Simulated assay, not measured.
Amino acid sequence: MRRAYIDSHLSLVDAYREATRWAEAIDCVIGPSTAAIERSPWLERSGIPLGVASNRHTRFTARPHGLVVAWCLNLEEILELEHRNQLSGVVAVQAPAGLRPWVAAHNVEHIGEDALETVPAVPPSIKALVKGITSMAVTNQGLTDKRERSEAIQALTYFHTRGHHLDPLQLTLEAIRNDWPGQAPIELAQIAHDVRAGRQLRHSNRIDEELLAEWANAA
């Protein structure tokens, strides 16, 4: 899939022009809400099909397809957009800093003057942790299954109690790299945030401790 992002320093008009140039042919524009699209009335005059990422009632009813302009979407919305639809490309307009893990995971092309700050290099141990959890069927259900959520909590708690730094951005990045579906990468980052904050999250010990130690000692 082709991917690009346009930094927020460009006006929406200029950003749309750059998106059109990069894409060559745009199939639809998907915004976060009806109001977000209505704030740029010239979009309706463009003749491009318009839709929204939310499930709320709207007069903009285009379904995401082909090459999509992600109009001011956040990370959660872009991950859901890519997960639930067969797309040939995505170009994110007014890309917020929150898109950094998505940009890094897919080596997304930058259009504009100021690229988003890079995510710090991911340690081998964190890569091993996420890859290990991925092998336990996370790619099918994300963390909606309580067993898979329990595995994530166990692994992150093990790492935290042994002094490993749990960076939510790095965890999100690795989960995206490992094709975790929809919002699952963000959910993993939230679990890490809660573990670091000292919250006692209920879980069972489903992963063998020797395997956890193997991940933690990866080099």
Rank of each mutant, 00 (worst) to 15 (best):
Gly89Tyr: 07
Met136Cys: 10
Leu188Gln: 00
Ile176Ser: 02
Lys146Phe: 14
Thr61Cys: 07
Pro41Tyr: 02
Glu174Lys: 05
Leu166Ile: 00
Arg56Glu: 15
Leu75Phe: 04
Thr172Asp: 09
Arg100Thr: 05
Leu173Asp: 04
Val69Ser: 01
Ala19Gln: 03
Pro101Ile: 00
Ala218Ser: 14
Leu99Tyr: 01
Ala97Phe: 04
Ile6Pro: 05
Pro64Glu: 05
Ala184Arg: 08
Arg202Trp: 11
Val69Asn: 10
Leu79Ser: 06
Gln190Ile: 03
Thr20Ile: 04
Met1His: 10
Asn74Val: 11
Leu75Glu: 09
Arg147Thr: 15
Ala213Arg: 13
Gln86Met: 12
Arg84Pro: 06
Arg177Lys: 14
Glu109Gly: 05
Gly198Ala: 01
Arg21Asn: 11
Ala62Arg: 06
Gly51Ala: 07
Glu76Thr: 09
Val93Tyr: 06
Glu214Ala: 14
His203Met: 02
Leu67Gln: 15
Leu73Ile: 11
Gln183Asn: 13
Asp114Thr: 15
Gly132Arg: 08
Ile37Ala: 05
Ile207Asn: 07
Ala62Ile: 02
Thr134Leu: 04
Cys72His: 13
Asp14Ser: 15
His203Ala: 14
Asp167Ala: 02
His193Met: 08
Glu117Trp: 09
Val13Leu: 12
Arg3Val: 02
Asp114Glu: 15
Leu166Arg: 11
Gln190Asp: 14
Glu214Thr: 15
Ala137Trp: 09
Glu117Ala: 10
Ala213Thr: 13
Val130Trp: 00
Ala15Lys: 04
Thr118Cys: 07
Arg147Tyr: 11
Thr172His: 06
